[in-house]
């Protein structure tokens, strides 16, 4: 930020028309409510629970770790390299992984369903679900975040790219539950299992969704770090702080608004 602009953040010099007097006004801070308490709870319950689901999922997956990216005999990426398993002490913990997975699945599913119900009943869904302009605007958001263009389209709580990402992650959670049910009880829920392409496909889909969650997590953390403290405070304390310059009542017209 240039020095001139920094100064302007602290002081504005306003000249009023009525008496030609120069008024020096200090800027004031305003708190703007951002995330309702309920959403903050859902978010911070989900974080450790999803982490445990992914961790226990790794312990389970290890027992039959057959997936890879590649073709024929060429493997670009093995899920997962031995060094990865070794570093995280994953091998031979299938029973532990299953016990955690089939306990914490309840918290993951319940928290997720209550969250979605809350979105509907509170009207928060209007701020999260993509609107008509979402596709076009999300492209502008991406170009903006990559510093290719300067201006963002006007937004409410979330920009178009966030709307798509956050709605996508809800769908991913739903997908994880459905594919998970298909693997967990493939005989009792054989219709779900068949619709997903059968038992082995359901396992591949469940795994792929987990990888997508991990990628979402990385992107989310990068964006949170870039967005800074005020934004992070929003998901903990619920509000953001915005700086404003209120006008005294005797000033009815600003002739000049000049940084000093």
């Amino acid at each position: 930020m240039p020095k001139r602009q920094k100064m302007a953040k602290r002081l504005h010099v306003l000249r009023a028309k009525s008496n030609n007097k120069i008024l020096i006004l200090q800027q004031m801070k305003k708190i703007v409510k951002k995330h309702p308490l309920a959403i903050r709870w859902f978010h911070w319950i989900n974080f450790p629970v999803l982490a445990i689901m992914i961790w226990s999922g790794l312990l389970i997956y290890w027992a039959n770790d057959i997936y890879r990216l590649g073709w024929g005999n060429t493997t670009v990426l093995k899920f997962f390299p031995d060094s990865f398993n070794k570093a995280l002490n994953i091998p031979f913990r299938l029973a532990e992984g299953m016990s955690l997975h089939f306990v914490f699945m309840w918290l993951f599913a319940i928290n997720g369903f209550v969250y979605v119900a809350y979105l509907f009943f509170s009207g928060e869904w209007k701020l999260i679900f993509p609107n008509k302009k979402a596709l076009k605007e999300s492209w502008q958001v991406i170009l903006h975040d990559l510093h290719i263009i300067n201006n963002l389209p006007p937004q409410k709580k979330y920009n178009a790219a966030q709307r798509i990402a956050y709605t996508g992650v809800i769908l991913m959670g739903f997908g994880s539950i459905v594919t998970g049910i298909a693997i967990y009880k493939p005989v009792q829920f054989k219709t779900i299992c068949a619709l997903l392409g059968g038992y082995e496909w359901a396992r591949i889909e469940h795994f792929t969704l987990t990888i997508l969650f991990a990628l979402f997590f990385v992107l989310h953390i990068v964006q949170v770090v870039l967005a800074g403290w005020n934004n992070f405070r929003g998901i903990v304390a619920g509000f953001e702080v915005v700086t404003v310059t209120p006008l005294p009542p005797n000033v009815n017209e600003i002739i000049e608004d000049q940084d000093q």
Binding site: K29, K30, V32, V244
Partner: peptide, 24 residues
């Protein structure tokens, strides 16, 4: 949804929220 507040109040609200957050 918006309120003008003093810096002190912002600090207190933030500290309280993060204290609860860390306790959790």
């Amino acid at each position: 949804n918006e309120k003008i507040v003093s810096s002190k109040e912002i600090r207190n609200k933030t500290l309280l929220a993060f204290a609860i957050f860390f306790l959790l």
